[in-house]
Structure formats: C-alpha cells, structure tokens
Measured scan of single mutants.
Amino acid sequence: MASQGTKRSYEQMETDGERQNATEIRASVGKMIDGIGRFYIQMCTELKLSDYEGRLIQNSLTIERMVLSAFDERRNKYLEEHPSAGKDPKKTGGPIYKRVDRKWMRELVLYDKEEIRRIWRQANNGDDATAGLTHMMIWHSNLNDTTYQRTRALVRTGMDPRMCSLMQGSTLPRRSGAAGAAVKGVGTMVMELIRMIKRGINDRNFWRGENGRKTRSAYERMCNILKGKFQTAAQRAMMDQVRESRNPGNAEIEDLIFLARSALILRGSVAHKSCLPACVYGPAVASGYDFEKEGYSLVGIDPFKLLQNSQVYSLIRPNENPAHKSQLVWMACNSAAFEDLRVLSFIRGTKVSPRGKLSTRGVQIASNENMDAMESSTLELRSRYWAIRTRSGGNTNQQRASAGQISVQPAFSVQRNLPFDKPTIMAAFTGNTEGRTSDMRAEIIRMMEGAKPEEMSFQGRGVFELSDERAANPIVPSFDMSNEGSYFFGDNAEEYDN
C-alpha cells in the first residue's frame, strides 16, 4: 500500500510504541512475548500442572481467558453494579484439565481477579502490559475465525453469508486497541457500523446529549479505520460520505453494504499476525530463551520457528480426527482463516481442507461434555516452508469459486491468482447506482469489472525454506488448481455463540 510509510507498523501498534527502528520493534515485541511466557509459567505453578498438562491447549485457553477477564475493567465495573446470582464479580476462573488415573478430569478453578492481575503485572515488570493482553485477544479471535462461520451475524446486519472472507476479527472485544483495529476485516468494521446506525434509528437519543457526542466521535473513528483499509480513492470518498452524514440511517447502511461487497474484489488491507497460545510461549521462556534479547516478529519467520520446536497437546472428542484438529489450530496460529487453501497447503506441506470436510468441533470443551471418553493427542503445528504475512489485500483475480465463501483475504505475501467468483459478486451490483453516491458507485463498479483474471497478485513473492531466515531465496510455489480455494466452501461450520 502506498501510504505504508505514514502508518505505524503493526509491531508498533502491538507494543504501543512511538516510531521505533526494526531492532527496537523486535525487542519490544519480544518483551511482550516474554511477559506472556513468564505469566503462563507462574500460572502453571499456581495450578500445580504437570509439564504435559501445561502444554494442553484447553488449559492455555482457560488461563488466557482468566487474565483477560481480570483486566476487563468495563465488564468488571458492570458486574459490580449489576450483581447477578451466583456470579462473584471479583473472581474469575474456568475449567482446568488434569490427568488422573490414566483419565482426563475437569476441575473448575476460581481465583481472585486481583490475584491474577498481581501475577500478570509481576510477570511483566510491574506494568499492565496491555500489548500482551491484546495479543491474547487476537489469538482467540484468530481461533474463532478458523472455527466458526459468522453466517447468522452477517444475515442479521443485512449482509450476504458468502462475504465471510471479510469477517476477520469479528469476535475481537471493543477494547483491543490499535492492534485489534489493524486485524479487523472490512466486513467486521461494516458490521460494527451498521449495528451502531441501527441503534440510532431505533433509539432517538442515541446521537443526542453528552453521551451522543461520545457516540458520534466513536462512529467517526470507526469510519476512519474502515476508510484506511480501502485502497481505492472511490471507496475512500464513499467512506467520507458515510462519516460526514448528519443523521446516519438506511442510506448509510446501503452504502456500507455496497462497500463491503466491493471489497470482495477491490480488497481492503487487513493486517495478519501470528499470535500463538500462551502454552507455546511459556515452555520456550522456561527453556531459557530470551525473546527480548533475541527479538521477535509476528509477521516473519519467528512464529514458524517457534511452532517448529513446540509440543502442544489437545483434548480430542471420541469421533474427532486429531489431524483435522491440528489443521484448525495451525490455521489459527498463522492467522489464515480466509487465505486461499492452495497457498496454505503449499506452505504447510500437507493438504489443507475446507472447514466442512474437517471432523472436528471447536477447541474448547463445553462444561456439560462427558470427560470419560476424552483422549488427548499432539497437535501437528509444523510447516514445510515459511512466508511473510501481508497486510495488503493483493490485486484481484477471477477463479472458480464456491457456493460458500466467494473470495479470499490473503494472509501471506505469496504470488498467486486470487480466487473470487466474479459473476456471483457482480450480480449483486445491478441497477442500484442512484442517489448521492452514484458517481462513486459507478466508478467502483467500473474498477471491479476491469479486474483481470490473468493478473498475478504479489508478483514474484515466494515462500522460503525454514533454514532461509533472511528470506534470501524465494520459492514461487505451484498450486494444484483442481483443489478448492475457499475454506468455508459450501460450508456447515458451527455458528459462533458468545
């Protein structure tokens, strides 16, 4: 993207840094990872977990959730003011799984939030270390993106479920800051804005008074975040219109849905970061690795190297396929839920299948599930090659597409044709070009129609051997075009429920 120079890199967003050079960025990201790792080690000690239990991804998720809940100030305040039966607002906890007599047992633990905050700050040299908290939120978000298709949420806001490739980060909490905003897809931002506008339509006082002023500035800020994701002048001009509207209503909703559809071809720039579970960072720190000293990046080879040398386990339900569970977590670790499966298959070195073909449910185990038949197995999170994460949407291309997802959002900077089903997408653009945004709409449609099938995206960008740390010898991959490109292809993934 041309304006790259004016933006802070995501590592800076990730670490609240002012302008830093590459070495400083690597050190501050490393410091953040160190903090998460030290916190995780301490929690495993508190909970008396064995090494194996500490490497269980379900335990990692519970521990991450506990610290996120302990620092969720708004919710904590709300819980104190609106006490609900049987919930102690000062405590947080969740299921911890232990191996007892050759069987997995679930144990519900409860801790004072104050105590968890103390352990977290102690692991982070006394700081609140917001960057580390956001990092864990993005890992949870990436896992949700890989596990669930947001059909219901899309339909509720009037969008087409086939636009799911635009929904990265749709389950990120509001408090995820600049680093969170960077990884949100165009569809996620559109959905947040539509929800806001709908509230304004239904509630006369939404934009009024002292609160209304705050609401208005939040609305304009979200519009600017979305505008910054678009790469064409016409899309940005249309966002200006939406932002400046005196009284946002149905016309703005129409414009936003139009823009979301246009992003299936004229893709937005959305950041991709490899955020790993805390149970990967903990053992690495415990083994003596100093992330701050060595430096770390979320968008280069580092996460690949770390996963190459990590042992992570997962509980497996009786009829689940461990290899499929591994694929789910591998995609989440690489922030690749909406990437082209052919690119992923090449990088991973084994075939990556669409969601609907995987015999696996989510990673988390519900409290009512029976533990008797639970097994555990090693997650295979290694890769054959590594590639640089991208934040450009890439230019655009036609490809055989599917009944489910009709476009992709690249996660890796790797040369390819970008699949999208042009006739299906263009069919949504018939007729409606009147109104105050008509010239911009016409211009956007013209650009979409001009998108050429034979153009290559990320020209000359390749993948790298894991021994090639400096990215000196790019390998331009070859793809098996007979395979499906979309992950949520004609899909039956479970729906995400809060």
Rank of each mutant, 00 (worst) to 15 (best):
L143A: 05
R389H: 00
M447Y: 02
R204H: 10
R99E: 09
Q327H: 06
A323S: 13
D101L: 13
I265W: 00
V155K: 07
S176R: 05
L379H: 05
N321K: 15
M43N: 13
L110T: 07
A251F: 11
A131E: 10
M191R: 07
R213S: 05
A411L: 07
S392I: 12
S262G: 13
V270L: 12
E465D: 03
S314V: 12
N368D: 01
N309L: 12
E24R: 11
G282I: 08
L143C: 14
S170V: 06
G460C: 13
V363P: 01
G249P: 08
V343G: 05
Y148P: 11
L108Q: 14
N211S: 11
G93Y: 03
I365R: 03
S60E: 05
N397S: 08
L166K: 04
Y111I: 10
S314K: 04
L341C: 12
F258Y: 09
F489L: 06
S9H: 00
R216F: 11
E375L: 15
A233R: 01
S3N: 14
E115S: 08
R74A: 11
V299N: 15
T146N: 15
R382P: 03
S482R: 05
R99W: 07
L306E: 02
M447W: 08
L266A: 05
R317F: 07
F39A: 15
T378Y: 11
H82G: 00
G268E: 10
G180T: 06
Y148I: 13
K48Q: 15
I347T: 09
G485V: 12
K31S: 08
S367D: 07
G54A: 14
D372M: 10
R446I: 05
M43I: 11
Y487V: 00
K31N: 11
S269T: 15
G462M: 01
W330E: 02
L379Y: 11
L226T: 12
R106H: 08
S367F: 11
D127S: 11
I36P: 01
M137L: 11
M136T: 06
E292P: 15
Y148V: 07
N21C: 11
P283E: 02
N250F: 07
D240H: 13
P318I: 10
E11R: 10
F39Q: 04
A403I: 04
F206V: 08
A403Y: 08
A178T: 12
S478T: 02
S377R: 15
R221P: 07
R470E: 00
G37N: 08
M159A: 06
I406K: 09
K227H: 09
